[in-house]
Design a protein around this nucleic acid. Structure first.
Length: 277
DNA sequence: CCCCAGGTAGGCT
DNA sequence: AGCCTACATGGG
């Protein structure tokens, strides 16, 4: 077990980050949080002035949480004294997580026309039923979790498996995309520019413009994209009432450039958390 | 019964 | 190129 600490600041909050709808493998416990990425685990606790991360790989999760990016500077740059400012005032602590491309592709195919509680449940079943069981010792006691499955495993179980775990009509998308991923060179995808990479992602069954943009942002760290989903549409429904989602996305990237992904995530978190208002 | 959820594929103009 | 609609599942 490795560990590291991060001083609490005005630009990072663990719960805001995990509950901002970008990752689906975390659970709250009585004294902290547990999250999982690929075959890694991380427990997070907090005290008066710091977060404590206890995990299998400190460097992996330091990078995962994007602690080397200057969020205060970004928030100053995109401050518009309007909707974006309001969103940041509320979700000041949301970081953009550096997630794995394949895990992001699978999770966001599941996410389409779905809600976050169900997405988490389906992803959890995929890991528990197809992922490697990883045992480890934590503070002297035996513990275990399930890794995200390999592409080979995901591609071997067939459409029926995904139907049985409640993926609904997305089952065929998952089966087809998993099989396509067997023949995909992820390294080659990493080298492509954003536009070319999006064109390749759109070839996967179940990946349209919005899911592709989520994969670009969360799985490939391309911040010059602005995924437009139902919540972002609600944010701009007065200002751009009849603009199609794809066109709106392009307008917003023109405006926010390489900070688009951050702005999108703050707006999404604010709008979704404030649905009751 | 309805509508909604981090939408997309396929079909029709 | 655009516009429609069926698509599983579960919660409000």
């Amino acid at each position: 077990m490795q560990s590291f600490q991060i001083k609490k600041t005005k630009t990072f909050n663990i719960l805001q980050t995990l509950e901002s709808g970008q990752m689906f493998r975390f659970i709250k416990t009585d004294n902290g949080l547990q999250l999982f990425s690929m075959n890694h685990y991380c427990y997070v606790f907090e005290n008066e002035d710091s977060y404590i991360f206890e995990c299998d790989n400190a460097k992996y999760f330091y990078d995962y949480f994007d602690f080397d990016t200057n969020y205060e500077l970004i928030q100053q740059i995109v401050d518009d004294k309007g909707q974006v400012s309001t969103a940041i005032d509320y979700g000041w602590g949301v970081h953009l997580l550096k997630q794995n491309p394949v895990e992001t592709i699978i999770c966001f195919i599941i996410s389409q026309n779905n809600n976050i509680v169900r997405i988490k449940s389906i992803v959890d079943k995929i890991c528990k039923q197809l992922g490697e069981k990883i045992q480890f010792r934590y503070k002297g006691e035996k513990n275990f979790y399930y890794a995200f499955p390999t592409i080979e495993k995901l591609a071997s179980v067939g459409e029926d498996f995904y139907k049985k775990i409640g993926a609904g009509y997305r089952a065929s998308y998952l089966d087809k995309t998993a099989k396509a991923l067997l023949k995909t060179d992820i390294n080659a995808l990493e080298m492509m520019n954003t536009i070319t990479l999006r064109e390749h992602l759109l070839k996967f069954h179940g990946v349209g413009r919005k899911v592709a943009d989520c994969i670009l942002l969360f799985g490939f760290q391309r911040f010059d994209v602005f995924p437009v989903d139902t919540w972002i549409l609600k944010v701009f429904k007065e200002e751009f009432s009849k603009v199609p989602a794809e066109k709106l996305s392009e307008l917003l990237v023109e405006k926010y450039g390489k900070y688009s992904g951050y702005v999108q995530q703050w707006l999404f978190y604010f709008k979704r958390e404030n649905k009751k208002l």
